[in-house]
């Protein structure tokens, strides 16, 4: 790859990550947009780990408690996230079951692992190239929000299916812990300073 890249830090400058304006390195607040300036935010890793920990903790009850309770005439059934996906699959809606399973199980767990890996990789020696890790970071940033699908499904269903004695759907406690888990994980990914990925390359050239 090109070796002609100069970073702002090498030139004694600090860049605003919000508006891309460049300032002398002593500056602490961007005059253009008001964002706090840090050439590298090493403390960002602490925030990444902290948000990630709460995200993982919230994800546990999200899988143990029911997401939905469906009452049809006199029978009540409660579905957890995985249970709901299996139920859909057995009713023939395999495509939708896959969407739910991917959005609510694979994406969250994948995100926990990728964020953890990225945070570890910038402090130690990384096996993956910065390009590959940057791709992972972009993936996590892009995909994180999509886990909210299941929460919205629960919201729509519980608003719509309120038919007196015939049928009613109500949200279960997992809906809230799942939503919180998604939010905390998004905050964790946003706390990560991707510039750290590229610094490692400069410090230990391949």
């Amino acid at each position: 790859m090109t070796t002609t890249i100069t970073t702002a830090r090498e030139k004694g400058l600090v860049a605003c990550t919000r508006c891309t304006r460049v300032w002398p390195i002593e500056k602490t607040v961007c005059d253009r947009c008001g964002t706090a300036l840090r050439s590298r935010d090493l403390r960002s890793l602490q925030r990444v780990w902290a948000w990630l920990a709460v995200g993982v903790i919230c994800y546990i009850p999200a899988n143990l408690y029911p997401m939905l309770s469906t009452r049809m005439l006199f029978t009540v059934s409660e579905d957890t996230i995985v249970g709901g996906a299996i139920e859909l699959a057995t009713h023939g809606a395999v495509g939708i079951a896959i969407v739910i399973f991917v959005a609510s199980v694979l994406i969250p767990i994948g995100k926990f692992m990728i964020i953890g890996f990225l945070a570890l990789s910038v402090t130690g020696r990384a096996r993956l190239s910065p390009h590959a890790r940057h791709k992972l970071y972009e993936l996590v940033e892009f995909i994180g929000r999509w886990s909210m699908i299941d929460v919205f499904v629960v919201a729509i269903l519980s608003a719509l299916v309120q038919l007196d004695v015939a049928a009613a759907i109500n949200p279960g406690p997992a809906a809230i812990t799942f939503a919180l888990s998604v939010i905390f994980t998004m905050l964790s990914a946003q706390s990560f300073d991707p510039r750290l990925i590229w610094d490692a390359e400069e410090d230990h050239p391949a």
Partner: peptide, 13 residues
């Protein structure tokens, strides 16, 4: 500095 731009993701100038 007015004429420069730094990549917000990787700090390239």
């Amino acid at each position: 500095e007015d004429a420069m731009i730094a990549c917000p993701q990787c700090d390239a100038l």
